[in-house]
Design a protein around this nucleic acid. Structure first.
Length: 338
DNA sequence: TGCCAGGCCTGTC
DNA sequence: GACAGGCATGGC
C-alpha cells in the first residue's frame, strides 16, 4: 500500500545521504530503501510530497531477541511529542506496517526547520550559506544501539566502508526480515534486473546481546579490524547494564557525554554523534576531520595555530542550541565540496 | 603503490 | 594539555 503526506521544508535525499545513517540505499527509481528497527522502509519524495510503501503482511511474531529490546517497553505507546522519546517501530504491532507517526518521528518532520534555523546566529554567514545549500536536511531520530555500533565501526573508515561493515554485521548477526510465509520482504535484489530472481532478505541490525555474545573472530570477519575489540567490549558493558543507553535521554548533555565516553572505543566525537543522531541532544556538535577542516577554512582562514580545544569552544559558543543541526549542514556541505 | 579514511588509546613531553 | 604512533583494512 502506498501512502503520501505533505512535507514542507524537507529534503529526503539530503537527510538520508548526509552521513548520519548507514543503511539507506537509493534505487534507480528514486526510492530509498532502508531497514529501521525490524521494518524495511521504502521512501520517495516528489516536490513537497513524501511517499512510502508498506508491506501488507508484516511478520506476526518478532523473535524473542528483538533488535530493539532496549525500547520494547516504549513500543506503540502513542504519539511522542518530546524530541528525546524513542520512535523506533517494531514490526507486527497493531495494524502492522509503517505508520505516518513513525515516518514523522524518524525523519523529524514534527519539527519546524525555519524555527530551528532561526536560532542560528544571524552573523554566522558560512552556516547560513550551508543551510541554504541543503535546505530540508533534518537530523534523524535513530535507535541508539545501532547508531553507537555504527559509529564505533566508523573510526578511521570511509563512509562507503562503514556501510559495508554495518551491512555485514546485519547479515551475519541480525535476523532476516520476512513475511509469515518466510519469504523476504522487499528482497534486496528485486530492483536489479541483472540479478534475475535471486533475492536476499534484509536483516535487522543485531541486538546488543547478540553482539555481546559474539566471538572476536566473527566480528573480525565483518571487516571491523581493530574496532572489533571495541564493539565487543562496548556491547558487553551495555549488556551487563554497566551503561544504560535508554537512560541517556533523561540526562543533562554533559552527564550523557560522560557516560558514553566510558565505553571502549567511544571518544568525544562518537559520543556526540550518538547523542545528536539518536538521543535528541540537538546541541551535540561532533567534530571529525571534515568538520575540523570546514571550521578552519570558514572561520579561521588566516589563523593556523588554532587548537582542537579552541575549535571545540568555538563550536560550543557560535552555533546556538541546535548546533548539531548546524554541524550536519556544514558537514554535508564540506563533503559535497569534494 | 601509496595515501587516507565521520577516531581512539596510550605513552611521552 | 598537546602531540605522535599504532591500530586493520580497503577504496581510490
Amino acid at each position: 500500500m502506498r501512502q503520501r503526506i505533505n512535507v514542507p521544508d524537507f529534503d529526503l535525499a539530503a537527510t538520508l545521504d548526509c552521513g548520519q545513517a548507514f543503511r539507506w540505499k537509493r534505487g534507480g527509481d528514486a526510492w530509498y530503501v532502508g531497514v529501521v528497527g525490524r521494518e524495511v522502509w521504502r521512501l520517495r519524495q516528489e516536490g513537497h510530497t513524501l511517499e512510502w510503501e508498506t508491506d501488507p503482511k508484516p511478520t506476526p511474531n518478532p523473535s524473542k531477541e528483538g533488535n530493539f529490546g532496549l525500547h520494547s517497553k516504549k513500543r506503540n505507546s502513542g504519539l511522542c511529542t518530546k524530541n528525546r522519546d524513542s520512535v523506533i517501530p517494531s514490526s507486527g504491532g497493531a495494524g502492522g506496517g509503517l505508520s505516518e507517526m513513525h515516518i514523522t518521528k524518524y525523519l523529524s518532520l514534527d519539527r519546524s526547520l525555519p524555527a530551528i534555523v532561526a536560532t542560528f546566529p544571524v552573523d554566522n554567514a558560512p552556516l547560513h550559506a550551508a543551510v541554504r545549500r541543503h535546505w530540508g536536511l533534518r537530523v534523524l531520530r535513530q535507535e541508539p544501539w545501532e547508531c553507537l555500533a555504527s559509529f564505533i565501526a566508523s573510526s578511521s573508515k570511509q563512509i562507503v566502508q562503514i556501510r559495508q561493515i554495518v551491512e555485514l554485521l546485519a547479515n551475519r548477526f541480525g535476523e532476516p526480515i520476512t513475511n509469515a510465509d518466510g519469504r523476504a520482504r522487499w528482497p534486496q535484489r528485486a530492483e536489479d534486473p541483472r540479478l534475475g530472481e535471486a533475492t536476499e532478505p534484509y536483516h535487522s541490525f543485531p541486538s546488543v546481546g547478540v553482539i555481546a555474545r559474539a566471538s572476536h573472530e566473527h566480528l573480525l570477519a565483518c571487516k571491523l579490524g581493530f574496532r572489533a575489540k571495541y564493539l565487543l567490549a562496548t556491547a558487553r558493558m551495555i549488556d551487563n547494564g554497566d551503561v544504560k543507553l535508554d537512560a541517556l535521554r533523561s540526562m543533562e548533555y554533559e552527564r550523557a557525554l560522560e557516560e558514553l565516553v566510558r565505553l571502549p572505543g567511544v571518544g568525544e566525537k562518537i559520543a556526540n554523534c550518538v547523542l545528536l543522531f539518536s538521543c535528541g541532544f540537538d546541541e551535540a556538535f561532533p567534530i571529525d576531520v571534515w568538520i575540523e577542516r570546514a571550521l578552519r577554512r570558514l572561520y579561521f582562514p588566516r589563523k593556523h595555530n588554532v587548537t582542537h580545544r579552541q575549535l571545540r569552544e568555538f563550536a560550543r559558543s557560535h552555533f546556538g542550541p541546535y548546533a548539531g543541526w548546524a554541524q550536519q549542514c556544514l558537514f554535508f556541505s564540506e563533503r559535497m565540496r569534494k
